[in-house]
């Protein structure tokens, strides 16, 4: 029995005024895979992610999450890490934990406390007093403490120092459920490519490549990072 869930984009286009952010995107993201959404700045990665999360409602085409348009059910299946801090400044880290516990049934409090401990973060710390990197780490701990069907991480390594990246990748890998789908948007490919099963290259809002990583390496004889540099050479 195939009980795989998926996110499907069918001819999805999105423009901001005269700027075309996505153009006829057709992709299928299935559970059981770690997928890299790769592309330079302004290629449409965040727009795709926002559509999946219901943050952009006005677009052409269809985006289906487990067969339905983004709605409250799909939101409960997705654990989303935005590319910037999104908690209110008055909160302490533990307030955010309480918020997640109250609103998401799949949130694992004990796991989150363990992850915070590994990341060296005190739950009594005020978010206002955290650095950008600390905020990203704590948000990652929150997001990875859910037992979701889809994990969508937008630039999870963006504001984190190189020394902490290995730890972050370890946390992502250890807490990723194999029956779920992990979509990671990034342009720090060399740091992260070893964990990808599949990659999607986005260029000017169009999907220029969607392939299994192993196949890509065998076909080209190059790493994903090298292929990326070749495709997006300025």
């Amino acid at each position: 029995m195939n009980d795989k869930k998926c996110i499907e984009f069918e001819n999805v286009s999105k423009s901001y005024g005269s700027k075309q952010a996505l153009s006829n995107v057709n992709v299928k993201l299935e559970t059981g895979k770690i997928i890299g959404l790769l592309g330079p700045n302004g290629s449409g990665k965040t727009t795709m992610i926002k559509i999946i999360n219901g943050l952009l409602r006005s677009y052409q085409g269809t985006c289906l999450i487990d067969g339905q348009l983004p709605n409250e059910v799909s939101k409960s299946m997705i654990s989303y890490l935005p590319d910037e801090p999104y908690f209110q400044e008055w909160m302490k880290i533990k307030d955010a934990l309480n918020l997640f516990r109250d609103h998401y049934q799949d949130f694992d409090w004990a796991l989150c406390m363990t992850l915070l401990d590994r990341l060296g973060l005190d739950p009594n710390l005020k978010i206002k007093s955290c650095s950008k990197g600390m905020k990203e780490k704590f948000q990652l701990a929150l997001v990875m403490s859910r037992k979701a069907q889809f994990y969508i991480l937008d630039e999870p390594l963006g504001g984190v120092d190189p020394a902490a990246r290995e730890l972050i990748l370890d946390i992502i890998l250890k807490n990723y459920n194999e029956n779920s789908c992990l979509l990671i948007s990034t342009h720090l490919i060399s740091d992260i490519e070893k964990i990808f099963d599949e990659i999607i290259f986005l260029k000017n809002g169009e999907v220029v490549l969607q392939k299994n990583c192993e196949e890509l390496r065998n076909e080209t004889g190059k790493s994903v990072d090298e292929t990326f540099r070749e495709v997006f050479k300025c």
């Binding site: 999360n53 943050l55 709605n71 409250e72 939101k75 997705i78 801090p85 609103h103």
Partner: peptide
């Protein structure tokens, strides 16, 4: 940016 949280909570 706080809207990222409000609008991704599992509510209509």
């Amino acid at each position: 940016k706080e809207g990222y949280l409000s609008h991704t909570l599992p509510y209509k």
